[in-house]
Each structure stands twice: as C-alpha cells, then as structure tokens.
Amino acid sequence: MEGTAVRGRLTWQTATVTKITPETARASTIVFEVPDWAGHRAGQHLDVRLTADDGYRAERSYSIASAPGEPVAITVERLEDGEVSPYLTEELRPGDEIELRGPIGGYFVWDPATDHGPLLLAAGGSGVVPLRSILRDRERTGSAEKARLLYSSRSLPDVIYREELERPDPGLDVVYTLTRSRPPGWRGHAGRVDDALLAEVAWPTGQGPLAFVCGPTSFVEAVAEGLVGLGYPPARVKTERFGATGGRQ
C-alpha cells in the first residue's frame, strides 16, 4: 500500500522539498512537506529511499533535525564516496519530490514531559543532528532542564548549526573539541574526547543526568564507556551509532 499512510504502519510517502539551507561546506539542511506525517519526537530519524531509472534502490537513515511541531527537516553531510548523500546535498532542489518513511525510533528519544534530569548531549560530527532536535524541543517547550552539549568536530568550520548553538541561552553550555585543525589562538579543547574532558563537562551523577550520545561508532563507545566509568547508570546513557556507509549519513 505504498503512498497511503495507514495508522500504525510505516509506509513510504512522497515528500516535497520546500527549502535547502547550507550549514557548512559539506552539510545542508533539507526541509520537507510531508502530507501524512504523524508527528515526530526529538531524537527520532527517518529513512530516505532513492530509486534509479533501472530500478536500483538505495536506502539511508537520517536523523530528524527539527523539533516536534516544526516542519520535517534532515541535515545531510556529503560523503565523497557516498551513494545517496551527494545527490541529497548537490542535486536536490526545492520543489523536488523524494520518498521517505518515518518517524522511526523509540529508544533514542527525549520526551520533556517524562524525561527528567539535566541533559548531557555528546556529538561526534554530524551526530549533532538529533541532539539539535532535542535542544530545539527543550527551548520550544520551555523545559527547565539545563543542557550541556559536548561537540567533537574536525574543525570550527565543520561545526553544524554553529550560529544557533552560540545564541545566548543561560540554560545551555556548548563545549567544542576540535580534532583535526584549530584556528590561530584557539583556547578551547583539542583532540578526541577523553575521560578527563568528560569528567570536566559531565553533570555530576548526583543530579540525575540523562545523556544522549550520537556519532561514529568509535566516538560513541569511548564517550559511553567514559560516562559509565564516571558512575552514570548505563540506562541513563542513550546511544546511537552511525557509520560512513549504510545506516546513518
């Protein structure tokens, strides 16, 4: 029953691109109009399907970048040898139609009504996308929970949503660590996230923090293990891993 949204079923739908905004040299945010969108929760993702003229199909998952209540948006980082991301970031134009299905996921989800405790959000590269949805949801719902974002990026120009993240917000701290190159005079953190940096940034366990960690597999494993080492209960460390091929990106 493709093309028809059945309640409770996950069906492929045709969405129309309404807006494309470059975020960095390699990443763009694509906003869709989806006729039968059931509404999403912060942290969920969707699947995109491309079909070539010869019938060959490629599917990829992308985290939803927008908050619940906002138009559906994804942020896509172009992979040089990618099958789908170069099309999405370079060929797609407003008005184009694309097949997608979602929202997907019930684990890596933040619900401001039921999830309590200060938020520790850790992003590796484009892993920041679902965390941005959480931050926007926090802002839109007027949540009283404080949030810290630890964002590991190759360089400052590779930071996605930088302007938005640096808007003054007394309840949000953003800490960058730059792994590959730093601007002259950079006084922030450098290199990969390690236990010392985590110990400095993470909320004390006594405050009942809730952590969301998203990024490449090696990043997620290092951060999740580090947080558990600091005493975070594993159930309070939600993780989502993506790879250079297949699943995420």
Partner: peptide
C-alpha cells in the same frame, strides 16, 4: 563498521508492524 539497533528501526517496524528499537 558495526552500527546499533537504531539503524534498523525502519526494517524492524516493517517486519514487526510496530516500533521495536
């Protein structure tokens, strides 16, 4: 590169008919 169960949320929903992650 191994991923995690989040990456197959769509497939699981297709097979089981509900959210399974």
């Amino acid at each position: 590169n191994p991923l995690d169960g989040n990456a197959i949320g769509g497939l699981l929903h297709e097979v089981f008919g509900t959210e399974m992650t």
